[in-house]
């Protein structure tokens, strides 16, 4: 393995471990100790306590689980929906493609997570609604990428040969086109994970994400902003965790992209 990758890999493994094994540990993210309200990190206090006297380490692990599963669901749903829609548009061409391009343009007209904010706000808070809102925004990137890929791949000779042999379009798409679009889609997915982690925490920061007492790094940061002078650890702990995960995902995404680029250069 590339020696630069130990750092992002370690961070992501830790994140994954906290998300998967966290629920198995004897953690008490909702346990309130009034005597320990806003106690800073120190001996016997690990990462300190929050404004209700709950242990921040336990809430950090529970928050990791929230961000991981939201990211997993949103990226999976967006990738499947987006690839499906983009591929259909590019392969069918004509009016269908035209309509799909227009729909993509309309979704792209909502800057950043504005549409997700509006949807999550109107549907009401809760982790399901966060996933729905972020997937509604997230599929567009995949659709655009899949469409561009399929447009060029469907011109290739092996697709023409398959068509000439009488292979039916669904089979051509699944067997002869989709596999060739996977590399760029995986890269897009890795960057999408970073975006979704930030977006989930952002929605929770705005009070539109998971509901208390469920833990999210974003809501801990929001609660912490009220006590910054006396207890900066409430903002620092979840913020550093969030930044490390996003940084690690971006570094891995960069690395993947560089590798694919090299292969493309060699092939060309």
């Amino acid at each position: 393995m590339n020696r630069h990758l130990w750092f992002p890999s370690a961070i992501l493994l830790l994140w994954l471990g906290m998300a998967i094994f966290g629920p198995l540990l004897d953690l008490r993210p909702d346990h309130i100790e009034l005597a320990r309200i806003l106690v800073p990190p120190g001996p016997g206090a690990w990462l300190g306590y929050d404004d209700l006297g709950r242990p921040l380490l336990d809430r950090l692990v529970a928050g990791a689980s929230t961000s991981f599963f939201v990211a997993l669901w949103v990226v999976a749903l967006s990738a499947v929906m987006g690839t499906f829609i983009g591929t259909i548009g590019a392969y069918a061409g004509g009016v269908w493609d035209h309509i799909i391009v227009r729909i993509i343009d309309i979704f792209l007209a909502f800057p950043g997570i504005l549409l997700a904010i509006a949807m999550a706000g109107l549907m009401g808070p809760g982790i399901d609604n966060v996933i729905i809102a972020l997937s509604t925004v997230g599929w567009v990137g995949f659709a655009r990428l899949a469409r561009a890929q399929v447009l060029s791949i469907k011109q290739r000779l092996h697709v023409e040969a398959a068509t000439a042999l009488g292979v039916r379009p669904p089979l051509i798409i699944v067997r002869h086109i989709i596999p060739l679009t996977l590399a760029p889609l995986i890269i897009e997915a890795s960057f999408a994970v970073a975006g979704v982690v930030i977006a989930e925490a952002g929605l929770s920061f705005l009070g539109l994400g998971v509901q208390p007492p469920e833990a999210s790094w974003g809501s801990t940061i929001r609660d912490g902003t009220r006590y910054m002078l006396v207890a900066p650890h409430m903002v620092l702990v979840p913020g550093i965790a969030l930044m490390l995960v996003v940084l690690a995902v971006n570094l891995l995404g960069d690395h993947l992209r560089d590798r694919v680029d090299v292969r493309m250069r060699q092939a060309g």
């Binding site: 925490a201 940061i221 929001r222 900066p232 903002v235 930044m243 940084l247």
Partner: peptide
């Protein structure tokens, strides 16, 4: 620039305020 891309607004803001 990598750090800049990875810091969300809702964390950078409170940090700068702090």
């Amino acid at each position: 620039s990598l750090l800049g891309i990875s810091i969300p607004h809702f964390w950078l803001g409170p940090l700068l305020i702090l």
